[in-house]
Structure formats: C-alpha cells, structure tokens
Design a protein around this nucleic acid. Structure first.
Lengths: 212, 212
DNA sequence: GTGTAATATTTTGTATGCAGAATTCATAGT
DNA sequence: ACTATGAATTCTGCATACAAAATATTACAC
C-alpha cells in the first residue's frame, strides 16, 4: 500500500481550503500564524509555505509586515473571476476531442437533469456542479489549462458560502447545463462553448445581488 | 526618499527570473538550495518561499524529497501556454474600453512599424514586444486577468532564450501587430482580438521548430 | 476627557538547527 | 567488468530561534 507521502504545505493548503468552504474564515480576516500553526499541529514554516501558495492563487493577500489575510470579496473581483473562468473553460472545451465530447454528452445531460430534480443542501449542489464541469472538461488535453482553471476556481471559493440555500436559481443553471450538453450531442462545439460562457455570465449575475 | 522595503522572497523571485532570462539555468536543472542561497546572500527560508511561488507559476517543478528544478521544456507545453495566453489577452482586449483603445491605436501602430525597421538584439526585441503587448492591454480594467497573464507569461520565459538571433520571423510579428492596431483604429474590437489570437498562434508556430 | 509620546507586547520576516530521505561512493561477490 | 549491497554524504523538509516591524498599552500633558 502506498502510504501518503506528501509535503505538509500541500496538506495544509487542502485543510485551509476545506475550512474556507465550511465558512470558518470571514473574508478580510487576518491570519495569526502561530495560532493557526498550533491549531493544525505544524510549525510555522510549512504553514507559511501554504499561505504563500494561496496568496498566489488570490485566496489570500499579503502585506509587508502585516502577514496574510483572506482577501476581501467584491462585486468587481467576482465579475472579473467569472469572466476569466468563462473564457478558460470555453477554451478547454474548444480544444477537447469532439468525438470524446459527443460520447460523454448523454451522461452530461443526465447529470444536468437530475440536477434540477433533486433539491439538496447547498454544499451538495456545489459539489454536483463542480463534478459536472470536471466531467465536461475531462477530455481536454491541455494540462496547464486545467491546472490554471483549478487555481482560478480556488480563488472563487471565497464567494461560494455567500450563496445561501435558495434553490430557484439552480434550476436556471441546470437548464443551461442541459443546453451545453444538447449542443455537444449535435456535435456543435462552438455553440456548446457559447452556452458554457453564458452559463458563467448568468451564474455571475445570479450571485451579484448577494455580494456587498 | 522611500527606501525599498519589500519581502526578500519577492526580490529573490525577481532576481531568479532575471537570471532565467539571461539563460543562466538550463531547463531541467536541479536547484541546490544552500548553494543558491549562499550565492544570493540570503537564507534558505525566503529562497524556498520564492521557489514555491515560481513553482505555482509553472516555472519550477517540485518533487517530494527531491526539491525544485526548472521545469523541462516541451513542444506540448509551449503550445498549451500559447493557447492560454492567446485566449487571455483576447479577453483582456475585448473587455477594454473601446474609446481608450482607439486613442492608443496610433501609438501601437507606430511601435509596430519601427519594430520591423530596427533589427536589434534578441533581448531588445523581446522587451519591445513585451512593451507593445503591455500597452495594448493597459486599458483593461480586469486586474485579476492582468495578473494572471503576467503569471502565465512568466512560465513562458523559459522558452524565450531558445529564440536565437534571427530577425526574419520578427518581421512577421510586426506585421501582425500592425494588423491588430489597424483594426483598433477602425473600432473593430472583434477583429483586433482575432488578429491578436493569430499573432500568438503564428508566434507559436515560429517557435516550434526550435524546441526539442 | 482627549491627544500624544514612550514603552511593552505581539507578530511577522528571516536565519539557523536538526532529522530523515535521497543520492553517491565504496566494497564485495559473481 | 558488472551488479548488488551497504555505508557515507548530501540535501531537503520541517522545527525552532532570533530580530525587527507593527500594534497595543500606559503615562502624562493639556
């Protein structure tokens, strides 16, 4: 059995993202390195390494002498991030193998449909949505692009917990997912990419109201 | 006078990128932390922090227990990076203020023209090219996008020194820059973005021959 | 009571120290 | 000669230590 042998900084980063998803940290919160390191049971060194990584992804900010803090949220930044991910996911889709996309299209359609049926917890919805997008991009051979998308999405997770448990806007999202899948079934890559971009733009507008 | 007061890790990162541009490090070279730290006159701690940042940008790779090394180059990765930057710069252009673009279009055209006239050193050419693209995107309000472009371009610098001092392909690049500027003069944003994408795709193909 | 200067405390940024993994080198066996 | 094995060495990953910057607290003048 291959025992887990991974740098602490990565495990720490993962744990911090988990806590961020749980809503443990409010945006703008300063991070106390000694306190957090003690809480996690590690030293400051790998913790700081994780913090630097997260700062590179835009999850944290760092100011000289003042350490790290969770970057504050803003409508402007959210709009910016959505535009970026929309473009990147569209690119990933367009540079995927059309045959493969046609093959997974039914599955994508199915997922999108029982997406609108089941009204679940917020976190379940998010997970479902993430998995759908992951499957959609699973045929893209551009590894750097996929990494980049993951990284940018990490920066967006700060906005996830602002989406409180209303399910109505999700039905719209499910419709949009269906539209993407349908275009793929038709072999219309361009159209699918456009629908995907729309999905992000609309998703953005759905969220905008909830951001201060 | 405001004396420079900036984290060491940033200064180190900058210095390393400078050395990378000078071609001091071959792709695939392992980094010896104590040696490099001694050479730079700093301790391993801020050096490692800089290395982690660079790894996040794709300039370096890190393997558990084996430290950092300059990521090897490949046609595949270069193609991937070009596709990404093309999409991102096009997005930046499309989300710029059209009026502003029209205003700077003459300057862009001028720069592109005396670009083809002066046959200079490789590094001068690169700097000129970089400045042209910077000016082109200077009207984009999406700060996250600009940061991201900078970051991805950092990963591409590993390929820069492969471009030895032949000037012929640069004339093609200058032509393409002119075309972008001309479209902007006409107020044709879509066309300019398309021409910009072409510039990246063509630039990629010009480079492909020189990569092992 | 409020504002300010001096001091104490906290917290970050950097340096150093240490344990263990990875690599190298040497030696023995075939 | 070549491979295998094990010791010696090198180097990373993490922990701890220290110095300087930032923040909080106190004392005091007005």
């Amino acid at each position: 059995m291959p025992i887990e042998r991974r740098p602490l900084r990565e495990q720490i980063r993962e744990e911090l993202m988990l806590r961020l998803d749980r809503g443990d940290f409010a945006a703008g919160t300063d991070i106390n390195e000694v306190a957090l390191a003690g809480e996690l049971g590690v030293s400051r060194t790998p913790l700081r390494e994780a913090l630097i990584t997260l700062a590179g992804e835009g999850v944290l900010e760092s100011n000289q002498g003042r350490g790290f803090r969770f970057a504050p949220v803003s409508r402007k930044e959210f709009r910016e991030l959505c535009a970026i991910v929309a473009a990147l996911e569209a690119l990933a889709l367009e540079s995927s193998d059309p045959a493969y996309l046609k093959k997974i299209a039914p599955e994508l359609l199915g997922l999108a449909q029982d997406f609108s049926d089941n009204i679940a917890e917020r976190q379940d919805i998010e997970r479902h949505d993430d998995e759908w997008h992951d499957l959609l991009l699973s045929g893209c051979g551009n590894e750097r692009l996929l990494d980049l998308i993951t990284s940018v999405k990490a920066g967006m997770r700060r906005y996830a917990h602002l989406m409180t448990g209303e399910s109505t806007p999700m039905e719209r999202a499910a419709e949009e997912h269906c539209r993407v899948a349908e275009r793929l079934l038709d072999g219309d890559l361009e159209g699918a990419a456009a629908a995907l971009r729309d999905n992000w733009v609309n998703g953005m507008e759905r969220m905008m109201a909830r951001i201060p």
